[in-house]
Design a protein around this nucleic acid. Structure first.
Ligand code: FES
Ligand code: FES
Lengths: 133, 133
DNA sequence: TATATTCCTACCATCCCGATAGGAATACTG
DNA sequence: CAGTATTCCTATCGGGATGGTAGGAATATA
């Protein structure tokens, strides 16, 4: 239960690898090789990270990816959300009525509390913590 | 991300309904009707709850289900685990080496910390809290 | 015997996910 | 300009999980 998608695990390992380079840039292929990630699959992941503004990219020869910010200021929550979207134990977390149960049910507050607990854990740890810890 | 299966949501609503009966027993059909759950699907869910010892059952005419314990002593974690298994952000939470990454990777502690945070939240709330709150 | 229920097994449709393929756009190099 | 290395885009595929249904066997009551 609550298993994390391979996509997100890959993304975090990739970000972690970039963090060890001290600002140097790396190609998708280099990261894939270093972290044992299917190379072609990683390309798509890096694109998502780019779209979310977590990494910067340059195309063409000598292109590659680099972190867009300091590892200490990139929260794990931002990485997770970039790939799998925001934490939603149930579909009605923000808008009540978006559940199968129209008007909300008893356990709803409980699920929202769970979301808050997860968000808090993910939000207060940074890429730096994870890479060094 | 981290969405809860319909199965588990159904189970919690069913347990919550049983909790309101004050020890009286209810048939699967009654619960299904009261909580708008596909009746035949709920049958399977109730069986799982039975196997896990969370409810008691009686067969035959005038059979049905009742809570096996006081709502205040049934943790939400026990319900969740009965249906979707234990919380496992990554496959190697207990046994290192059971991940694709053989020897463990940097983010592993981070994932285990997440598991602990979720387990704590689920473990310290009871069916009573959820049904009344 | 008739009826109401739990319980068991099989099945199905659909969606999601991890992964691959092929190429277009872009940028550097000589 | 030609060649090459890279990001980026789109399409596709196989497998597995998931939500849900069907049918009936076992069991208990009346
Ligand atoms: S109505 Fe959304 S969780 Fe019950
Ligand atoms: S080795 Fe299990 S999470 Fe990385």
């Amino acid at each position: 239960m609550f298993s994390v998608s391979a996509k997100t695990q890959y993304a975090i390992r990739a970000m972690s690898y970039l963090a060890t380079l001290g600002g140097r840039s790396a190609t998708s292929a280099e990261i894939a090789s270093a972290e044992s990630i299917p190379s072609k699959y990683l390309e798509g992941i890096m694109s998502l990270l780019k779209t979310s503004g977590l990494v910067d990219s340059e195309r063409g020869k000598h292109g590659g990816y680099r972190l867009a910010a300091d590892p200490a200021s990139i929260t794990m929550l931002s990485i997770v959300e970039a790939l799998d979207g925001s934490v939603k134990p149930v579909t009605c977390v923000d808008a009540i009525g978006s559940c199968a149960q129209g008007q909300g049910c008893q356990p709803r507050k409980f699920w929202i509390g769970l979301k808050d607990a997860i968000d808090e854990y993910l939000g207060e740890r940074t890429l730096k913590d994870v890479t060094e810890g």
